[in-house]
Design a protein around this nucleic acid. Structure first.
Lengths: 333, 333
DNA sequence: CTGTTAGCGCTTTCAA
DNA sequence: TTGAAAGCGCTAACAG
């Protein structure tokens, strides 16, 4: 293991270590000729800055953390792309963590990020426990909530899930459905409870009782969860329409129902949420609620970096996007 | 920003900093009573070890890097899960990087990982340039190739892509196809060139000329690339069958062809590669080549950690899995 | 514009 | 079993 430090570079370039550091961090303060010499030495020696040393000395790293509920969900992949695109311009790195909707994993991820002394954290929290937030804050780590609305003391970028739930449900009701099922993950996940609230609101607006909506809760918001939900649907008797809290669930439901000989939308209407790319290519193209995923990641990152760069002058803001209904075959007879 | 260091913990527990460090790293060498006292102090103070300082002093971090071609591809997501599951048991972190099939981004990712002094790197390289590997090696970073066969001096875990290409093509030929198209990313991507070689082998076995296969190369191996390929297919005249280098491409092709009124498999047979979950749920369930994705990640990580733990006694090995044909509607009239 | 210098917080001998 | 002390490689004053 060859270790080339800033000292060797300095020696070879005939300058002091401090100058090498300046070339690395504030090149404009170094005379062009000197800079060139140092850069050559760096190249010749294959020097790579020791990030630990630099982080230790500088007090903070050039990395931010991104904690999502499910890396396997295209929704979060799109968010991550937005984050990446903003961050990579600024020579920062993104540490991507997956909480898998589990508070324990989320806590572990945050500990790792705290150990790494990341500058900030973008997080879609698994629940409403704000102690997480405070803990981070106390260590001087900036936090922005992604896809999770916040109140005054944090930045957040979210999409109106109540409106989305209303949109989806109103659409199903407009199609003639009267008995509905709502398939979702645990209600502790805010996206689930908000979308459900939206559904209830739509029911009320339509003058229907709240018990027109049956809840089917599954442990994971993916295709497997969807297949589980379909079993319940099949054994309990089909409703007129099914609203799934995300597209992965809806795809699983669709698949399992088809295999059981149930036809969508003839026998039951179906709508998902997120409008991931695969939904339009499904066996029955899936109606869904579209969200500005990439924008979510992009804007959240901009807010985070703004806060990092100027913690004092920064004013927290809560951004709320509006979702959009996309009608396809799965819900239109 | 409150900074709690090992010193404050030591003071509160009435021990020396060295002892706190021992509690953190070799708890068995500390008397149970002392240990308890220190652990309490850690908890009370909310101490989180400074990873930079510890990495700097220890010479290496408790993280490994994983560099994949496309985080948006479920294939790599499955691989990443395998990696995670192995690594999380050992109190290590995974830094997930996306090269997006670009050598420049790959180089940037590797520089970041080198800066972080990761213990090892799992990588699906974008091309056959081995200087990457050497560079890392010279710094004492262990490397394992994922989904990329290697020769004697590195560990690798891969799936036989030539066999897979043969499998897919033989299947199409058995269905009666005579004129074929192969849709893939740049041939510099080994997965593409190998699968193509397999296709040619199948052609030869069947006594058909190599020019029975038309190549359609697109810049990115995702659904968008697939749609691009479909345009070429439509304008150049449809072949009997299309073999796509991965399922994302195939899904894009399927979608664009359907929109143009072409029916699969009636007008043209189609097969993908990877057998991602979405493929079975597609408008026309997609035939594909199945690979042990999760196992790939798991085994690669085990090899990597083995090498990290005992670089001297470690013998490099190249693992090659065999792929499996999955026939669905898209290729069976 | 460049050099000197004092640590950042932790790990790890070595002694006690 | 525990403590004391010497840096790991780098950055950021400050001086020149």
């Amino acid at each position: 293991m060859v270790t080339v430090g800033i000292k060797e570079v300095a020696r070879r370039a005939g300058v002091s270590p401090g100058t090498v550091s300046n070339v690395l961090n504030r090149p404009e303060r170094v005379a062009p000729a000197t800079r060139t010499r140092v850069e050559e030495a760096i190249r010749d020696l294959g020097f790579v800055r020791n990030g630990s040393a630099s982080t230790l000395r500088a007090g903070q790293s050039r990395a931010i953390g991104l904690v999502v509920l499910d890396v396997g969900n295209p929704f979060f992949v799109a968010v991550a792309r937005g984050v990446e695109d903003v961050v990579s311009d600024r020579d920062h790195a993104v540490i991507l963590c997956n909480s898998g909707e589990s508070p324990a994993k989320q806590a572990r991820n945050l500990r790792v990020l705290a150990e790494q002394r990341v500058r900030g954290v973008l997080i879609t929290p698994v629940d409403d426990d704000t102690s997480v937030l405070r803990r981070l804050r106390d260590r001087g780590v900036a936090v922005v909530y992604v896809d999770h609305p916040a109140s005054g003391d944090v930045c957040s970028v979210a999409v109106d899930d109540v409106a989305g739930g209303d949109l989806a449900t109103s659409h199903l009701l407009a199609g003639g459905a009267r008995r509905l099922a709502f398939v979702s993950g645990p209600p502790a996940i805010r996206q689930c409870s908000d979308r459900r609230r939206g559904a209830l609101r739509a029911l009320e607006t339509a003058g229907l009782p709240a018990d027109a909506l049956t809840d089917i809760v599954v442990p994971e918001m993916n295709a497997h969860g969807g297949r589980l939900a379909a079993e319940t649907l099949l054994s309990d008797g089909l409703p007129d329409a099914v609203f799934c809290a995300n597209d992965l669930l809806a795809l699983g439901v669709l698949r399992a129902l088809s295999q059981a000989g149930v036809q969508v939308p003839r026998d039951v209407a179906l709508i998902g949420y997120d409008d991931i790319e695969f939904s339009s290519a499904a066996a029955v193209p899936l109606s869904s609620i579209r969200q500005p995923m990439y924008q979510l990641g992009k804007l959240a990152t901009e807010l985070l970096l703004e806060e990092c760069d100027d913690p004092a002058g920064h004013a927290h803001q809560q951004i709320m996007f509006q979702p959009e209904l996309v009608v396809r075959e799965s819900s239109s007879p």
